[in-house]
Design a protein around this nucleic acid. Structure first.
Lengths: 192, 192
DNA sequence: ATCCTTAACGCAAAATATTTGCATTAAGCT
DNA sequence: AGCTTAATGCAAATATTTTGCGTTAAGGAT
């Protein structure tokens, strides 16, 4: 009587999950973000609506589940050879993704769900990437940056602008944000 | 044949809008943020559901409308006599409001709506308050702060944490964020 | 003050979406 | 291979959203 796995992972269950996710992505791509319904998704995925309701609860929970899966990183950020350029390259790509219409919609889907923990999971993805960059830095003998500082003063402004204003952050803007992380240290070092 | 006002403002229309808003606030307060429906709101407000659908479109649009109305400032921030303390007092209260369960729910309601412009309107409220503080500063002969800098490095981190992490920003944390606005200028002045 | 136009509403039927009971399928384990 | 039961399909029941149409009442004009 093992009480280990109480949820089914393989076979049909996984096939349905994949089909439903694919259907959401396909329907979300066209039909510019309006009027997507559970019966529509079910038909596209070749599944009964009741299956979706039982597994995900409601539309917003399903959209959030798909959004988190799409926001989950599939690869480590590029290795440019040095921490600072690693960080600049990562942030530039991150800002572009999150400010795009798709990225904005994914964030809204995650935030709209009543499920607790999904938004913090997404923040965790970003934190993981920054930790990876720092691990590389340490392996190279470089001094790592302060992750919380980058989140507060580089990531947060980018996300705030993406969510609450219409303007997209330019690469130049991103670099100015990162300057605030690196320039003070340099000034202090050269001044003292 | 005047084409001035094409939307009705007074009388019954206003009464219904008020009753519906009140119903949303009342139902939103209890029933901890789950399972609130349009028919429920209609019954509480003493209106037909079809009225709500025709006026607001769907539930998320109604919730967003109510949320923006609640986020709209009703009074100017407190006047403490000096810009820096004005800013610290305002930010502390702002952080507390936005990080509270109610504040988080209001932000999610605004972001969840498909209506364009509502999130930027809310960002505008914050900007207006900061502009008010700066106007006071100028009237006093003080040097105003950089509004964009405060939004990027004080407001944005607070909102990012409220939305994407579970931790609430302490007053101490808020003050450290504001220190980054004021301390560099002081150091530069005293150093050079 | 009264009339006119029409935006906004109420009502009820229709269309659509969601929930639920029950039979069936197939994972995961022994 | 057999057993247990989570997960699904189907269809009925329930709830919701949409829509047509008659009625009410703002806002303006006479």
């Amino acid at each position: 009587m093992t009480v280990k796995e109480r949820v089914r992972i393989g076979g049909r269950s996984a096939r349905i999950q994949s089909a439903v996710h694919d259907a959401v992505r396909k329907l979300g791509a066209l039909s510019t973000r309006n009027q997507i319904t559970v019966p529509q998704i079910a038909a596209e995925a070749g599944v009964t609506p009741s299956t979706i309701y039982r597994r995900w609860g409601d539309l917003s929970a399903l959209l959030a589940d798909v959004a988190v899966a799409r926001l989950r990183p599939i690869a480590d950020p590029d290795d440019t050879g040095a921490v600072e350029t690693d960080l600049r390259a990562f942030i530039e790509q991150y800002a572009e993704e999150m400010s795009s219409p798709v990225g904005q919609a994914l964030m809204r889907d995650v935030l709209s769900a009543l499920k607790e923990g999904l938004p913090s999971a997404c923040a965790g993805f970003t934190c993981d990437h920054l930790t990876t960059l720092n691990a590389r830095a340490k392996a190279r003998g470089e001094t790592p940056f302060d992750i919380d500082e980058v989140i507060d003063h580089v990531v947060a402004p980018i996300i705030y602008r993406a969510l609450f204003s219409e303007q997209i952050p330019t690469p130049d803007y991103c670099n100015r944000l990162i300057d605030r992380i690196y320039l003070p240290a340099r000034k202090r070092r050269t001044a003292v």
